[in-house]
Amino acid sequence: MAETPLAGRHALITGGGTGIGAAAAGHLSAAGAKLSLLGRRIEPLQAVSELHGGAVIQCDVTDPSRVAAAFDEARAANGPIDLLVVNAGIAESAPFHKMTRESWDRIIATNLTAAFDCTRAAIGDLLKSDNGRLVLVASVASLRGVPYAAHYAASKHGLLGLMRSLAGEYAKTSLTVNAVCPGYVDTPMTDQSVARVSQITGRSEGDARSAITNMNASGRLVDPEAIGNVIAMLCLPLSRDINGAAVTIDGGTAA
């Protein structure tokens, strides 16, 4: 196998400044891909770009007009998009009877509607590429219910439905569409979840972190680098027959 099997490929990553997005950037860059890193906060994107190269583009993915402009900026920097990693997402927690419509709309807009907009913005390029790849960062919440996070679970279930529908629709093309479904990952988003659980339940942050960590069967948080590695694998030309897959990475919880 070539040492840089993605040489010349343009990979666009949403939420590319931290966590899974930053890890995916490192693995895709190591495989030779040119990077476009999108996110709301410019400083984390610049830090990733300093390590791995790539264009840095500020973008709130819940603004469809900004998404379209950002994708055009990415094309101007790196050419047509061959690989799209839809990673941007947020999480919130609340008992359902206290969940607000504003919270619901915010989660759905960021985790699901933005995935639609980003995919629409890239689909023409992806279908023209001889090895187009779309990878959606979903969650084990795509596969089961999550108490106190009904809106988050609904958004991630929807993301999996989008993936499976597109995988079937484009199965006879050169585009593959897959999802990764991590459990709890050692990222800032999990740190925020710990703080929310502590606030809601009155537990100490240490107890809250232990409770969340133990939801992974392994008893440890998933390393974002492991997820970045799987994303890069799904983007390889040799992965052309992996299509419509929801790859669970959670230490065995869903086994």
Rank of each mutant, 00 (worst) to 15 (best):
D191C: 04
K128C: 14
A69S: 13
L84C: 02
A226Q: 11
Q58L: 05
A94F: 04
M1F: 13
G17L: 06
G17E: 08
A121P: 07
L175G: 04
S239V: 02
P5T: 05
G251E: 08
P5R: 09
A7Y: 12
K128R: 15
A24E: 15
F71V: 15
V177K: 09
R101H: 12
S218H: 03
A33T: 14
G219I: 11
R144A: 12
M163K: 06
T100I: 02
R144V: 11
P80Q: 15
M1C: 03
I200C: 02
V67D: 15
V177G: 06
G32A: 05
A2N: 11
A24F: 10
L166P: 15
I212T: 02
N78T: 12
T100D: 04
A195Y: 04
A138F: 08
V197G: 05
T253H: 07
A179T: 02
C235A: 11
E169I: 14
H10T: 14
A246G: 14
V48F: 07
D186F: 02
D130E: 13
P80R: 15
M189I: 15
V247M: 11
A2W: 07
M163T: 03
L234H: 06
G161L: 00
P80D: 12
Q46N: 10
D223S: 09
H97I: 06
R40F: 01
G32C: 07
A91T: 06
S49M: 05
A171I: 12
A55P: 11
A109R: 13
S129G: 04
V222T: 07
L134A: 04
I227G: 03
G132C: 09
A171N: 06
L127N: 13
I90Q: 13
L221H: 08
H97S: 05
I200L: 11
D207Q: 09
V48A: 00
T201W: 00
V85T: 00
H157P: 14
H157E: 15
A47D: 13
L136E: 10
G252L: 06
Y152I: 05
